[in-house]
Design a protein around this nucleic acid. Structure first.
Length: 110
DNA sequence: TTTATGGCTGTCA
DNA sequence: ATGACAGCCATAA
């Protein structure tokens, strides 16, 4: 294992661990990344993610189980599209059932 | 070095 | 149920 410098790298690593058909909240990723409750950093890290990154940032959503309205128009729509393509279903209003699609990590936790 | 910003979260009314 | 407020930290300029 290496020691990735920068908090972003850590977040990307966690997001990459999210399986298909599953979603994780910013707070969840933050906790797994070791940030602990600092979900905001996750959002900024993902916002800075380059398109060539193999990080499924679209699998990361807010605690409401919905996609955050980022500053880029259409961005949230594309995220929803990607999730639906993976098999994630949205409720009326574009919300996801966290109780059903929330990613539950097993190994790697203390 | 400091300043400003930001795809969040949790609590209260 | 919804709306509003404050707090935490890293990155970039």
């Amino acid at each position: 294992m290496k020691k990735p410098t920068g908090t972003y790298a850590r977040i990307y690593t966690v997001v990459r661990r999210i399986p298909i058909g599953r979603v994780a909240t910013y707070g969840q990723v933050a906790g797994l990344a070791g940030l602990g409750g600092h979900a905001r950093q996750v959002g900024y890290a993902v916002s800075a993610l380059p398109d060539e990154s193999n990080v499924p940032w679209h699998r990361v959503i807010n605690a409401r189980g919905e996609i955050s309205p980022r500053g880029e128009p259409g961005g949230d729509l594309e995220q929803r599209s990607l999730l639906e393509a993976e098999g994630v279903q949205f409720n009326a209003g574009g919300r996801i059932s966290l109780e059903r699609y929330r990613w539950r990590p097993r190994t790697g936790l203390p």
